[in-house]
């Protein structure tokens, strides 16, 4: 998967969960849960939503790798077809 496409998917799912965010101001290295005030339910929804859109399933043990926008996008690039 292209890096830009991966970022688009994440930001789009994120916007559904936190409608007030401005995609242009997202700090790519900031921790998603803190930056966007996501609780564990929100995060689960994010993982599920992005996973479906990208056609992969992120296991729980990889949560550390997808904690930031950069990390998540990179993860998609590496794992999604």
């Amino acid at each position: 998967m292209e890096r830009d496409r991966a970022t688009d998917i994440i930001v789009s799912v994120l916007s559904g969960i936190a409608p007030e965010i401005d995609p242009g101001t997202v700090d790519p290295s900031g921790e998603l849960q803190f930056e966007f005030d996501l609780d564990s339910m929100d995060f689960l929804n994010l993982v599920e939503g992005v996973g479906k859109a990208a056609g992969i399933e992120v296991p729980e043990r990889d949560y550390a790798a997808i904690a930031t926008l950069d990390g998540f996008a990179q993860y998609l690039v590496a794992h999604a077809g």
Partner: peptide
């Protein structure tokens, strides 16, 4: 949680809360 979540899709996973 580690045991039950490992085989589950995200939507079926249980959080500590």
């Amino acid at each position: 949680l580690d045991r039950v979540n490992v085989d589950r899709p995200p939507g079926d996973r249980v959080v500590p809360a």
